[in-house]
């Protein structure tokens, strides 16, 4: 089943997650919001303007994305890859201005990539590459950053590292970040808002509010997984 009737809005300076079971349409929703794929129905408004009325370059200055698909060429250096984030602003051949350079430097610093910046992307670990991809999105300097499962394939430490970095970006730059995730417990701790795709009301609220409304209890079948509101964590159901 794919979730229907999704309605939510985000303001600047908010870190929000989309959670839900496999196949419910988290990625589809996120990719639709980023115009990576055409929308099935409904309306998406950014800064009071419908998504479809944005030209390619205009939209590139509004929304940046970090997707799950691997990049086509990993033979770029970290700095080259991050520099590509400046494309919406550079001239016909992509010359970097001083402003571009300083924006790139800023992203490198914020993502703590100073030591890695001259490495080739194929030399990086998954966690490092994910940080580079986020730095690239940051260099694009958009009000909105969309990330599709940014913590998949990472160990616990790196999952937390990435999510805390996202939090830091939101606090420091007042950007809006929306990401899909299976790390519901971490999202509860770190996000300002969470959108639960549960094929019902698809609530979008603050995590504490969602817990109070017992929204997480219905996310998974109760005979397999139960939600403990006191610790805001999931447990394997006892019995059978």
């Amino acid at each position: 089943m794919i979730a229907k009737n999704i309605d939510f809005s985000l303001s600047s300076g908010e870190l929000a997650a989309i959670v839900g079971i496999n196949g419910i349409g988290k990625s589809t929703l996120l990719r639709t919001l980023g115009k990576v794929q055409p929308k099935l129905s409904g309306e998406i408004i950014i800064n009071g303007k419908p998504l479809n009325s944005y030209g390619p370059r205009e939209l590139a200055a509004q929304i940046s994305v970090v997707l799950t698909e691997p990049i086509a060429s990993k033979n770029m250096t970290v700095l080259e890859l991050i520099s590509l984030g400046r494309q919406p602003y550079t001239n016909w051949i992509g010359t970097l201005s001083d402003a571009d350079q300083s924006k790139i430097k800023e992203s490198v610093q914020l993502m703590a990539l100073g030591d890695l910046q001259h490495k080739k992307c194929h030399e990086l670990s998954d966690g490092q590459l994910q940080r580079v991809m986020i730095a690239r999105a940051l260099a694009q300097d958009t009000a909105i950053i969309l990330l599709d499962e940014p913590t998949t394939h990472l160990d616990l430490y790196h999952k937390v590292q990435i999510l805390k970095l996202l939090k830091k970006i939101v606090r420091q730059t007042n950007k809006t970040i929306l990401f899909t995730s299976h790390e519901i417990e971490m999202a509860i701790q770190l996000c300002d808002k969470i959108l639960i795709l549960d094929n019902g009301e698809n609530p979008f609220e603050r995590p504490t509010e969602l817990i109070a409304q017992k929204r997480f209890e219905k996310l998974f079948p109760a005979d397999t997984i139960e939600f403990d509101a006191a610790t805001a964590s999931f447990r394997i159901s006892k019995g059978q």
Binding site: V65, P70, I71, Q87, Q140
Partner: peptide, 22 residues
């Protein structure tokens, strides 16, 4: 030569290139 910038964006893949305004 006119496509140089696009070609560089395509190094990331088509979806990323599109998100960069190509």
């Amino acid at each position: 030569i006119a496509s140089i910038k696009t070609l560089n964006a395509l190094l990331l893949g088509e979806n990323y290139a599109r998100s960069l305004g190509v």
